Simulated scan of single mutants.
Amino acid sequence: MSESATGSRVRQDVITESETERATRLVSRVSAIFGERVVGQDSLRVALISTMLAGGHVLLESVPGLAKTTAAQTLAGAVSGTFHRIQCTPDLMPNDIVGTQIFNYATNEFSTQLGPVHANFVLLDEINRSSAKTQSAMLEAMQEKQTSIGGEVYPLPRPFMVLATQNPIEEEGTYVLPEAQMDRFLMKEVLTYPTPNEEVEILELTSAGAFEDPIEHQPITLDDVQFLQGLVSRVYVDLSIKQYIVALINTTRGGGPRPLPNFHQHVRVGASPRGGIALMRVAQAVALQEGRTYVVPDDVKKLRHPVLRHRLVRTYDALANNVAPESLVDAVFATVPTP
């Protein structure tokens, strides 16, 4: 490629000021709508919006009643997207999610009935209650962005985002989600209880019927979401930032520029290259939300826990001693020099 052609491509990829301003307005509207329906949970809001902008999927873990379903419905409504909720149970079959062929006796022909996975936003409630076979079918749809029914391929809507939930306190009737499958999720967000003041606000708004009122802000469109996703991929990532991310990922494997002593006693398997890609994509999404067209180290650090907590396979000793994955991630970030 000639130098002029290369220069043209670089100029074309530079995000303009008008594009940045439009992105800021769109993200602000989504955040405002989220705030109308979900009290507090700022980390959840940032995680969901960042996941959507990066074109990934998110795994939500919490005890029941912390507005996971409300947050998913609100996000779908904020971008004018279709929303389907799938309650996972042990007897849920792959066809119940993907779809199936139905024989019409009147015409002697098969017709295809698409499953609930064919929506812009799909909430998989209690994914760890479904069998491994059903989990695999869903994760295949997440990865391939398409389903296969009766030999025919049906593309999923764009954008497409899965929000899977799991309950950490229930074990009876659950199937553990394997680490290799959890790695498919861009982020794993762990929800916490609201503060007392936030809980009082929830009761006040419930008493006033505010959650039933129409949304005040105008939702954005699916085309706007695709514009934002295209913009995220154009956010500039300097070579030094990429080297920083690679150093972080290698440190989780026991290597890196400054290997952590005895780290292998806590972590059996570190993050894969997919973890590095996730760190970079999420950092680009964070930078865009901050109104910047380039990534800084703080963008990489901001969502380090949701991006990496489910990618570190802890040893039995670490599990027995209740060593939190977040503390291991912090140790990695503390030892790797910031560019």
Rank of each mutant, 00 (worst) to 15 (best):
T335A: 15
V300H: 05
E189R: 05
I15F: 05
V313F: 06
E204N: 10
I220S: 07
S18M: 09
F110M: 06
V46M: 11
T82N: 03
V14Y: 10
S18I: 14
N322R: 10
Q143W: 08
A320C: 08
A278E: 07
F263G: 12
R268F: 04
S4P: 02
V237W: 02
P219F: 04
F263N: 13
A32N: 12
Q226C: 13
R11H: 08
K188A: 07
R22I: 13
V58Y: 01
A141K: 01
T174Y: 00
R268C: 09
D298R: 04
P259I: 04
V237P: 02
L279Q: 07
Q146T: 10
M187A: 05
T100S: 09
R158F: 08
A208G: 08
Y193R: 13
T221Q: 03
E199V: 11
K242C: 09
Q41K: 04
G77N: 11
L59A: 04
G7V: 10
E140Q: 09
V79L: 07
Q265L: 15
S28R: 12
V162K: 03
P214S: 10
T89G: 06
R292Q: 01
T24Q: 14
L59G: 02
F263A: 15
L279W: 04
L177N: 07
L239S: 15
S136A: 08
L288N: 02
A5S: 12
G291K: 00
G65F: 06
L156N: 03
T51S: 06
L260G: 08
V38C: 05
V30Q: 05
H118K: 00
L328K: 01
D42A: 11
I202Q: 05
R234G: 05
P64S: 08
Q226T: 15
F227E: 10
C88H: 01
G56I: 09
A283P: 09
R22A: 12
I249G: 01
L319V: 15
G276S: 06
S62I: 08
R253E: 15
L312D: 09
G40C: 06
A334V: 13
L92T: 10
S2E: 12
V295S: 05
N128G: 08
V225H: 00
T251P: 04
N262A: 15
L328T: 11
E3S: 11
T338F: 07
V30D: 13
T51Y: 00
K188F: 10
V117S: 02
Q41S: 03
R25M: 15
V79C: 07
G230L: 00
T70M: 11
A208H: 01
L186W: 06
E189K: 02
F121T: 05
L114H: 01
I15L: 12
P257C: 11
T16D: 07
Q146Y: 06
E179Q: 13
V79H: 00
I149V: 09
P257Q: 09
Q226V: 15
E126P: 09
S148D: 08
V98W: 03
V176M: 14
V46D: 15
R45G: 11
L248F: 08
E171R: 13
P261S: 09
A324C: 12
S2Q: 03
T252Q: 06
G56D: 04
R9S: 14
T69H: 01
A278K: 00
R234K: 08
G230D: 01
G55V: 02
L75S: 03
R304S: 12
A137G: 10
